[in-house]
Write a protein that binds this DNA or RNA. Structure first.
Lengths: 114, 114
DNA sequence: TTGACATGCAACCATTCAGTTGCATATTCG
DNA sequence: CGAATATGCAACTGAATGGTTGCATGTCAA
């Protein structure tokens, strides 16, 4: 859970996932070609993605081919985002109620600090 | 996008969101009571959640009341996870094909390094 | 006004992190 | 075999991070 979010919290890694989404089976060297960093840098990012199970790799001789694994994303949606999704309508309604109905806001919005 | 994932990539922050999910309107002090760190530590986490727009706060006198804002989560699902979700079935099928059909694997799985 | 309470700001520290560099290991090809 | 290619491992560094402590500011209540 933490690993997945952490892995996704980096534009470089998301770009890697995007590339693997468009075309699977890319090697480390191929992924490192367009990247604005060393091959080792990319390797570290990929290691993080693998640790989060977002990328699976297969050895093909001396080539390591990488594939996107979308399962953890599904897990996030269902285990974590889903419950908030369920509450989204209620929350929005509550939000609007609080924001639009001044009957409960008479003590709010006092300016303070900055 | 980065902010949201980064905000979610921390158990403390997810716990804060959980608490706000169960009961909105908690103050900083209330949120800090059960936390295994200083109030200032919690304040920093909340600042990150606010920067990611996952938490909205309203001033009520000297009390700052916090509310969960699930909208960014919805954004994640639709903008980012969604497209992989769409491809999930295809990807799984492709996965299974590669894993189960040996016709394309004759050069794979050579042991290497560790 | 005075004191207690809720929060914010800033400095500081130990740890983690992203990225680089250098070198080792394994595979392919001639 | 030996050279070239693909990758991994380890050490290092500057920057970011998580958390603390100390103090300032604003608000409520007597």
């Amino acid at each position: 859970m933490t690993d997945v979010f952490h892995a996704l919290a980096d534009p470089t890694r998301r770009a890697l996932l995007d590339r693997l989404f468009l075309k699977g089976g890319l090697t480390l060297s191929e992924l490192a070609e367009g990247a604005p960093m060393t091959r080792q840098g990319v390797a570290k990012h990929i290691a993080i993605l693998e640790a989060a199970n977002l990328v699976t790799a297969e050895w093909e001789g001396r080539n390591k081919r990488h594939f996107l694994n979308p399962v953890p994303l599904t897990g996030i949606v269902h285990r974590w985002v889903g419950k908030f999704e369920d509450a989204r309508l209620d929350a929005l309604a509550e939000f609007k109620t609080r924001l639009e109905d001044p009957t409960d806001m008479d003590k709010k919005d006092t300016k303070r600090n900055g």
